[in-house]
């Protein structure tokens, strides 16, 4: 028995390594100062997919992302690590989407991919930390969900059942759920395996149409006949039959009223160098005032 697996991936600014230049003097985010990375927990999800593929030979892994044309980078990264094919949903009207419009768009793309047994994605993306898109996709596709998954313990394709260990507040639980379903994978799950050198050679020139100049596209046309895998599927809103009222800004119930770069009200503070005398005095003061005991 083989499985049809969809993995959701997002390219995100690396908010974990924010330097002092991450904000402009005007208080807006300096995107150029933040490298774009594969959302970490989506890599944990890819690893779970790769393990299923090893367990059920003949399974296929389709990686789906939505974003700017540049987000094809995460598809290539997934292909290097063992995914079979990728889809990039990119279109101007999709911009400005909140989680609900994003989950609608992705659910339409998943319907277009068609047959699926399991949809895996990271629990949340580090640029928003909302953890909303996975469950919202599940709801839109009429599927159940297992969130915060740490490990797929077993999967029975005939009985269409999966057993998953998941994180809960203060502990763990093991649940049994029916296929197909959405599973969002926690960062505590197994890390993703590295790139495979052969696959890197095979896929390093794979692109979506929007990444090619007209000259490159012309030169690539004859190559694609022999190596169709060098074309990563690119879809726009029309390709996935998206309702214009449910995508982008129009499909987003939430509005950003204001964004502020917070300036903390400076307290009157005492600055010291950390010399023995100063620390000794500080500790005595804190003890005398019974602040520490």
């Amino acid at each position: 028995m083989s499985l049809k697996i969809v993995v959701l991936a997002k390219q995100v600014p690396d908010t974990r390594n924010v330097g002092p230049d991450a904000m402009t003097p005007e208080g807006t985010v300096n995107r150029a100062a933040l490298p774009a990375v594969f959302n970490p927990e989506d890599l944990n999800a890819l690893e779970q997919a790769l393990r299923l593929k090893e367990q059920f030979p003949g399974s296929t892994i389709s990686v789906l992302t939505m974003g700017l044309p540049k987000s094809a980078e995460v598809i290539r990264e997934a292909l290097y690590r063992g995914a079979d094919q990728g889809y990039v949903v990119t279109d101007r009207p999709l911009g400005g989407a909140d989680t609900l419009a994003t989950s609608y768009t992705l659910s339409q793309a998943i319907k277009k991919i068609g047959d699926y047994d399991i949809i895996l994605g990271g629990r949340q993306a580090i640029d928003g930390d909302t953890a909303q898109v996975g469950p919202q996709i599940a709801e839109k596709l009429g599927l159940t969900q297992v969130t915060y998954a740490e490990e797929i313990l077993s999967l029975d394709p005939e009985k269409k059942k999966i057993v998953v260990k998941r994180h809960i507040d203060g502990g763990v639980e093991t649940v049994e759920a029916p296929l197909p379903l959405v599973v969002t994978v926690n960062g505590s799950a197994a890390p993703c395996r590295p790139r495979n050198a052969k696959r890197l050679m095979k896929y390093k020139n794979a692109t979506i149409a929007a990444e090619r100049t007209p000259e490159q596209a012309e030169a690539l046309a004859p190559v694609l006949e022999k190596k169709p895998y060098l074309n990563i599927t690119q879809w726009g809103a029309a390709d996935i039959d998206a309702d214009p009222a449910q995508i982008g800004k129009a499909g987003s119930p939430t509005n950003v009223k204001a964004v502020q770069n917070i300036v903390f009200k400076a307290k009157e503070s005492r600055t010291m160098t950390g010399s023995d005398d100063e620390i000794d005095t500080l500790i005595q003061e804190l003890l005398n005032e019974k602040i520490i005991g």
Binding site: P13, T15, V256, K257, Q260, N261
Partner: peptide, 8 residues
């Protein structure tokens, strides 16, 4: 945005 701004 990783905690660098506050949004309403």
């Amino acid at each position: 945005f990783g905690g660098n701004i506050v949004a309403t």
